[in-house]
Design a protein around this nucleic acid. Structure first.
Length: 598
RNA sequence: GCCCUCGUAGCUCAGUAGGAUAGAGCAUCGGUUUCCUAAACCGAGUGCCACAGGUUCGAUUCCUGUCGAGGGUACCA
């Protein structure tokens, strides 16, 4: 890897320099810490201000060890390194920091040819080869509409799936539908009581929602409805044919609707399953906990007690014998572990379910403790709740039960409509206006979810989600369209074998650095399950490019990329191509399309 | 009560393996287009990084406590 070339050269040279400059101390202490090149390598960092240097190495902690003050150490080491044979780096020192400047031509040549050669595969890696990761996301509930409340899990999960695929993981995106549970008892009660006979077999998700909302309204007055719902669910679970037919009906209506919306959004899954899939797998799960002696009975319910862990008990079965969400999730975990032998199982689920996952992972740990499973065979350590904050609306939580819901599709339609108006104003000759408008509308919506780190609560604000200016999805898309336009206007050939020393203005250097660092942004995003890091990086790159694009010369004229200077143009256009590739691929990782014109 | 997360500019947020004078966008004001896409670019101002301690050469970042906001806390998911 390119970065390492510079870093390891520094580490080796610095190690030598320390040994020479502080020879006495080296004899005394030996080859550790300061004198050890791999220690130095590990402690190389990046200056916040990129003009200081490509990398930096602080020497504060060496003060005591070497009996010298940090600024002095830094300057002595700097001098020693600079007096050695020059290769790819040079250094300078300020106040205890050694700043490392790299050979721009070497970096540019490697990075740019890497991008040109690999195109959309630039930034791919094999660090995930041989590893399997499952990502569960979206997971809407059947018989409820797709509201903006589902937007974060859907967009985040879709992005994580793509990121892990890019890093070489065998990745399986799972949509785990909420197609079972007491809510179906409610739906069945509501349907039997109030379904509009003229709509039979023509119901839409909205009709189902109306029934669901009505159930909760009436249940406020009439508490016995909740009991009726539990009874109907119990009947469903024990195979009642009428209820089962209703369940099938609700399920089909919903899945058809979801697929349509996923299709519009470009959301992909590898496996669409649901809670009901686990119905015949729960007995064995409960058995396993019983055999491990972890099960007890409390108030008629079958539980795994977690009092020692300061957690509420796991309810495997309710007092009426019906199962719960957690029972099914446990079964699902065991089933997936057995079927896929995963290395990681990610649950992209809102933070308000964190106790649920703590209970689940704890119960699994206790099960494996009881079974004396050796550490290297454990699966309970492989689950991870990738949590994210809640979406509020006007500072209030949204509630499906009360019908306080904004349909995701309405948001998409509104965004696309505004994008279309903007296109008609700016580029009325554009082909496929509706298609591009949808891409831009979705870009705005997706980015609005990606620009904030996942653990923050967010307020849903129309004006924010529908913004096309500043740090937004459309800004990135616009930059991509600009880049694409340049590529169309350039008539020559693209050849990465050019003289990179021609790219000598600071803006161009900055762009090359950001293109190089795209790889790191992907790796960081994967490490903390945070696509936000890719989004931030793309904004920086796009901003750097736009600045370069509109750079003016000393006479105040735009310094154009395509000019009469053919050699310079060749060099710059290769840079343009590289930025285009990175922005397009970065957007892809976020789930956003990159139109060539807009 | 207890547990978890969050608290950075007027607003929305970056700052995620502790580092050098804390950065963007929006909003406000001013400027840039004989047009390589102005959905852009340039310039202007604002911060007791909630508060108080601690660890460290160094803390917005780690630890403890306080305050504030949100969420959760056995038969919903």
């Amino acid at each position: 890897m390119l970065e390492n070339k510079f870093k390891s050269e520094f580490a080796l040279k610095a190690s030598e320099a320390f040994k020479t400059v502080y020879a006495d101390k080296y004899k005394e202490i030996g080859d550790e810490q300061v004198f050890n090149s791999s220690f130095i390598l590990d402690n190389i960092e990046k200056p916040k201000d990129s003009t200081k240097g490509r990398f930096a190495f602080p020497v504060f902690r060496h003060g005591k060890l070497l009996g010298d003050n940090p600024p002095s150490i830094a300057s002595k080491i700097t001098e020693a390194i600079n007096s050695s044979d020059k290769n790819l780096i040079s250094v300078s020192s300020i106040a205890g920091f050694i700043n490392i400047q790299t050979d721009f031509n070497v970096e540019a040549a490697e990075t740019i040819s890497d991008v040109i050669k690999n195109d959309s595969n630039y930034g791919s890696s094999d660090i995930g080869n041989g590893k399997k990761i499952l990502v569960e996301y979206s997971s809407p509930n059947i018989a409820k509409p797709f509201g903006v409340g589902h937007i974060r899990t859907t967009i985040l999960g879709n992005s994580l799936r793509r990121i892990f695929l890019k890093l070489g993981y065998d990745t399986i995106g799972i949509n785990y539908l909420g197609d079972w549970g007491t809510q179906f008892g409610k739906m069945i009660v509501a349907y039997k009581k109030w379904a509009d006979p003229t709509l039979i077999d023509k119901e839409t998700v909205s009709d189902l929602l109306a029934l669901y909302v009505r159930f909760h309204e009436e249940a406020e007055e009439n508490k016995s409805l909740e009991d009726e719902a539990r009874d109907e669910f119990k009947k469903l679970e024990s195979g009642d044919s009428e209820n089962n037919a209703l369940w099938e009906k609700f399920r089909k209506i919903s899945i058809d609707e979801f697929s349509r919306v996923y299709d519009i959004m470009g959301i992909e899954f590898d496996w669409i399953t649901g809670e009901a899939f686990l119905n015949d797998k729960m007995e064995s799960t409960i058995d396993a906990f019983e055999k491990a002696n972890l099960v007890s009975e409390s108030d008629g319910a079958t539980i795994v007690d977690l009092q020692d862990e300061q957690l509420p008990p796991v309810l495997l079965k309710k007092a009426d014998g019906a199962t719960l969400y957690l029972t099914r999730d446990l079964s699902g975990y065991l089933y997936r572990a057995d079927k896929y032998k995963f290395d990681e199982m990610l649950y992209v689920v809102a933070v308000n379910q964190s106790v649920h996952f703590q209970q689940m992972f704890k119960a699994l740990t206790m099960l494996e403790d009881a079974q004396s499973v050796p550490d290297d065979k454990r699966i309970s350590t492989k689950g991870k709740h990738v949590d994210f904050g809640m979406i509020k609306f006007g500072d209030k939580m949204m509630s499906t039960r009360k019908g306080h819901i904004i349909f995701l599709e309405d948001v998409i339609k509104e965004a696309a409509k505004l994008a279309k108006e903007k296109i008609e104003e700016k580029t009325p000759d554009l082909e496929n206006i509706d298609e591009i408008a949808l891409q831009i509308g979705l870009g705005a919506i997706f980015y609005s979810q990606m620009s904030v780190r996942r653990q923050k609560d967010v307020n849903f604000r129309w004006e924010e989600v529908l913004s096309f200016e500043g740090e937004t999805g459309p800004y990135l898309q616009y930059t991509h369209a600009r880049l694409s336009s340049l590529m169309r206007n350039y008539k020559g050939t693209i050849d990465a074998d050019i003289d990179f020393s021609l790219l000598d203005c600071p803006e161009e250097k900055r762009i090359v650095e950001l293109v190089t660092d795209f790889k790191q942004a992907i790796a960081d995003a994967a490490r903390v399950y945070e696509p936000n890091m890719i989004a931030n990086h793309l904004i920086e790159l796009a901003a750097a490019f736009n600045k370069f694009y509109q750079r003016k010369d000393t006479e105040g004229r735009i310094d154009k990329i395509i000019s009469d200077n053919t050699e310079l143009t060749k060099a710059r256009i290769v840079l343009v191509k590289a930025v285009q590739v990175v922005i397009k691929e970065g957007l892809y990782l976020l789930g956003i399309k990159a139109p060539e014109a807009m």
